[in-house]
Amino acid sequence: MIEFSLWDIVRNLLLAARWTVVLSLVSFMGGALVGTLLLFMRIGRRRVLGLFAKYYVELFQGTPLLMQLFLAFFGLGLVGIDVPAWLAAGVALILWSAAFLTEIWRGCVEAIAKGQWEASSSLGMGYVQQMRYVILPQAMKIAIPPTVGFSVQVIKGTALTSIIGFVELSKAGTVVTNATFQPFMVYGLVALIYFALCWPLSKSSQVLERKLNVAHRNH
């Protein structure tokens, strides 16, 4: 049996952590894109589109991410293509992130006072103008802290893609454990690397939130 030094273990984990980062970025940005689309359907004035977005969100928030990954993996397979794990992982995580971001952002749009709609109406603005010049600029500002906070959920969510065979930090943890028989240390290190990725984001979300609250109290 080959001996592994601590450095060997850490190096292997860090190399795999790159894929955690890449998948997180892709999922978050893709999710933001799809989420924006869903948000406009959700808050728009077309009832059918609004209901579609509403049920989309409920479906993705009401079922396990792991199941969504399985369904993407085996569902895309049914269409006839041999699905690589990274594709299923990306698709599922993008759709999942989109649902949560839509809901977060909808809350921010609805948090804007009714008077803002009325004042802009009374000045003759139409729905699109109100959204573009009055509502969204304010909603985007209050959306920043919870959106940053959600990015932590995305990073943690990528851990599940190891189960369908995508090789990222968690999968590397399992592989290295099987080679070294040191689960306590290896999973401890894996947890620390995740913590190093997530904690700065959590913290900045909290700081941003606090700043926003202070700014609000001055009104």
């Binding site: 006072a113 008077g115 009325e118 004042a119 802009s120 009374s122 009055v134 304010q138």
Partner: peptide, 10 residues
């Protein structure tokens, strides 16, 4: 034009 009780400035 309309003026509101709560000002409703942007």
């Amino acid at each position: 034009g309309m003026i509101f009780q709560q000002f409703n400035l942007f």
